[in-house]
Design a protein around this nucleic acid. Structure first.
Length: 468
RNA sequence: GUCCCCAUCGUCUAGAGGCCUAGGACGCCAGCCUUUCACGUUGGUAACACGGGUUCGAAUCCCGUUGGGGACGCCA
C-alpha cells in the first residue's frame, strides 16, 4: 500500500508557519515512502473562507516548494456527499435528530462544568422520538457516540493514547441548515481521497478519537494518525495569528529564501544526528514522522537568520541579482540599468557573506546604486575631520594618475599612508576616511574592491563631493 | 473545571541502561585573520525540572510533584 498524506488548511486566513511545517512533514513523509501528498482546502465555513486566503495558501505553498500531487480538493464542493453520509448514519440508527437550542447547550456546558463532568451535550434527544419535536425548530443531526468503554489510538508520534468514551459527547455531523460539520467532512474526505496517514498539529489529537468513532460507524478503514506538537513563539506561548504567527509571504518579504525556511522548519521538532544543513534529497531519505519530537518547539528568528545566511552565501551571484531585481520591481522601482547590474554582479561575492537576508542584501547593495550626492551616516561624517580631508586631498591627486584595479589601488594607498605621510600611520587611518567619502558609511565591503567596481570617474566625483 | 500530551545548555536538538566528567548547531564571550563590517578559524560559557523507586549501573525504565502545552463550538 503506497501511503497518501494530505495537508488540509482552512482558508479563513493566510498560510502560517505552523501550517507550512505540517505540509512539509506530510510531503516529506509521502516522498520518503514513495507515496502521494495531496491538498484539500477545507472551505466549509462559508462565512469565513475567502478566495484571497485560498490564493495566498496556494501561492505560499508554491513559493516554499511544497508541491502537492493531483488537483486540490475543495471541501465545499463535496457537501452533497457529506450530507448523504449523514443521512445514511441516521437511517442506520447511528445518528439522531436533536432539537436542543443554543441556550440549552450553553446551560448544559455550564452545569457540567459546575458538577466536574466533561462539558458537552448531555444526549437529551438521543432516544426521544421525532413526534416530541418542538414546532418550528430545525434539528441538527448528531452522531450516536458510544459512551461506554475506552478507545486507543496508536499515534505515529504520540504513541498509544487512551481516552474514555464518556469524555466524548454526541457530536453534530449535520447542522440545522443542512451543511456538514468539519468532523464529518474530514472523515468522508479522508476516506474518499484514500488518505492513509493523517499527519497534523496535535491540537487535533482529541478530534482523532471522534473521527475514529465515525470511521468505525461507517465501516471504513481508519487511517494512521500522527499528531505533531505545535510551534511556540519565542516567549513559549502558543504561536497564533494574534501572537507572532506570520503569513508565509511575510517571511518572503523579509528576505528569507524558501530553501532556508524549509531547512529551518524541518529542524523544528525533528533532527537527524548532528545534521543542520539538509538538502531536499537528504530530507526525503532521512525523514520519518516517527522521529518527530513530542515536545513543542519555539520559533527562533536568530537561528532562522543564520540558516538563511548560509543559503544566501551558497546562492550564485546571478541568482541573487535576479532575486534583488524581483524585489525591486515589487517595490515599484525601475529596473536596474546595465551599469548597475554589472556593478552588482561584480560586487555580489563580497556583499553576500555580510548579510543575513535579502533585505539586508538590498541595503548593502546600495553602495553600488546610490545616486550622488551620497547620504552620509553620522558616523561616516565624523570620520571626515579637517585632517582627514587634507589627507584625502593629497591622495586624490595620486588617484587621478593611478591604474584602477583593487591591488593597484591598495598598494598606492598603502604607500601613501606609510611613506608619504608618516611610517607610523596605519592604512586604516587613510582607508577609513576614504571609505566614508566613497561609500558614505563606516562599513562596507573591502574599499579597494568597491572603488574598482565603481570606476575611477564615479570615485573621484564622490571624493570631490566631500572635498569641496 | 474535565480529559490528553510534554519536560536535555537561553533556543533548536543528539542521546533508545554502561560509549555521557552529556555531543552538535544558533546565540553569547575571547583569540586569530584584517583597511571597516562580515565571512572563516581556534577556544570558552551554558542543560539532563524536582523527589522517590527499579538496577551492579539511569539523561535514558516506573511512580509522584512541579512547570508547560493542547482539546473540550451548529469553527476548522
Amino acid at each position: 500500500m503506497t501511503p497518501v498524506t494530505r495537508f488540509a488548511p482552512s482558508p479563513t486566513g493566510f498560510l502560517h508557519i505552523g501550517g507550512a511545517r505540517t505540509a512539509l512533514f506530510n510531503r516529506l513523509y509521502a516522498q520518503h515512502l514513495g507515496g502521494r501528498f495531496r491538498l484539500r482546502i477545507e472551505d466549509t465555513d462559508k462565512a469565513r473562507s475567502t478566495p484571497e486566503a485560498i490564493h495566498a495558501i496556494l501561492e505560499g505553498m508554491r513559493w516554499l516548494g511544497l508541491y502537492w500531487d493531483e488537483e486540490p480538493v475543495f471541501q465545499s464542493a463535496r457537501a452533497e456527499r457529506h450530507r448523504d453520509i449523514a443521512f445514511s448514519l441516521l437511517e442506520a440508527g447511528k445518528a439522531y435528530r436533536c432539537y436542543a437550542t443554543p441556550e440549552e447547550l450553553a446551560e448544559m456546558r455550564a452545569t457540567a462544568k459546575a458538577e466536574g463532568r466533561p462539558p458537552g451535550y448531555d444526549g437529551r434527544w438521543r432516544s426521544r422520538t421525532p413526534s416530541e419535536a418542538p414546532e418550528g425548530v430545525a434539528p441538527v443531526i448528531r452522531f450516536k457516540a458510544p459512551h461506554e468503554g475506552e478507545q486507543q489510538i496508536d499515534d505515529l508520534i504520540q504513541g498509544t493514547v487512551t481516552v474514555a468514551n464518556r469524555q466524548l459527547d454526541d457530536m453534530i455531523v449535520l447542522r440545522s441548515d443542512g451543511s456538514p460539520t468539519y468532523m464529518l467532512s474530514v472523515v468522508v474526505d479522508d476516506h474518499d481521497m484514500g488518505i492513509t496517514h493523517v499527519i497534523r498539529g496535535d491540537d487535533h489529537l482529541t478530534n482523532a478519537f471522534r473521527q475514529r468513532q465515525l470511521f468505525q460507524a461507517l465501516g471504513w478503514e481508519i487511517p494512521v494518525f500522527g499528531h505533531i506538537p505545535l510551534i511556540h513563539g519565542a516567549d513559549g506561548a502558543k504561536l497564533s495569528k494574534r501572537h507572532g504567527a506570520l503569513a508565509i509571504e511575510a517571511y518572503r518579504d523579509m528576505g528569507y529564501l524558501p530553501d532556508a525556511l524549509r531547512n529551518y522548519l524541518l529542524r523544528l521538532g525533528w533532527g537527524h544526528g548532528d545534521e543542520e544543513i539538509i538538502s531536499d534529497a537528504q530530507a526525503v531519505s532521512w525523514f520519518d514522522v516517527a522521529d518527530v519530537g513530542k515536545n513543542p518547539a519555539r520559533f527562533d528568528f536568530t537561528k532562522l537568520n543564520s540558516v538563511n545566511a548560509h543559503y544566501l552565501r551558497q546562492s550564485s551571484d546571478e541568482a541573487l541579482l535576479t532575486l534583488l531585481a524581483d524585489r525591486r520591481r515589487c517595490g515599484g522601482k525601475s529596473n536596474y540599468s546595465d551599469e548597475q547590474r554589472q556593478r552588482l554582479l561584480a560586487g555580489m561575492a563580497s556583499l553576500k557573506p555580510r548579510v543575513k537576508r535579502l533585505d539586508d542584501l538590498a541595503e548593502a547593495a546600495e553602495v553600488y546604486l546610490a545616486e550622488r550626492p551620497l547620504k552620509r551616516t553620522d558616523e561616516a561624517a565624523k570620520l571626515l575631520t579637517a585632517e582627514a580631508l587634507a589627507t584625502l586631498t593629497g591622495l586624490r591627486a595620486l588617484l587621478e594618475a593611478s591604474g584602477w584595479d583593487r591591488h593597484e589601488l591598495e598598494s598606492l594607498v598603502r604607500h601613501y599612508a606609510e611613506e608619504v605621510m608618516d611610517p607610523a600611520v596605519k592604512l586604516g587611518k587613510v582607508a577609513q576616511p576614504l571609505r566614508a567619502a566613497i561609500t558614505g558609511s563606516k562599513v562596507s565591503p573591502p574599499i579597494f574592491e568597491v572603488m574598482e567596481i565603481l570606476g575611477r570617474e564615479e570615485c573621484l566625483t564622490r571624493l570631490d563631493d566631500c572635498l569641496i
